[in-house]
Amino acid sequence: MAVSVSLNVNGKSVSREVEPRTLLVEFLREELGLTGTHVGCDTSQCGACVVHVDGKSVKACTMLAAQANGTSVLTIEGLAPNPEDLHPMQAAFRDNHGLQCGFCTPGMIMSAVDLLQHNADPSEQEVREWLEGNICRCTGYHNIVKAVLDAAGRMRGQPQAAE
């Protein structure tokens, strides 16, 4: 029996009839074509699929679309209004070379943005601990951590954009 799912994704209302076993990440990628949210391990480990549900970061491979019914979801596509006006976290990743292949980047950025919502001035240790659930196989994390610290500084220096 299909279930009806209505949610707000990146500021737009969407409604679909889906099978109950549809994962949120499948819903985003296959129903809505939002392929910026990646499927890496599909086992809740790697964090490539991190999105925000009602402002909190979650692994979209470990949540059913039906569980997200009625929520507001923010994906990497919704973070910046246009390609010329990157979110400070995206800009910091670019400026600090916080990526190589880029596969983990959407999840890293969504996770890091959630960190700064809780803790506007994290220490390097706090950034590393927070990113426990995001795996990168290219960078060794060094520049990712640098980028998050840089973004934190940029965001403290400017009025924080409402999500």
Binding site: S57, D114, W130, E132
Partner: peptide
């Protein structure tokens, strides 16, 4: 427990 995303759910 787990990681930040697991703790959120």
């Amino acid at each position: 427990i787990g990681d930040a995303q697991v703790r959120n759910c």
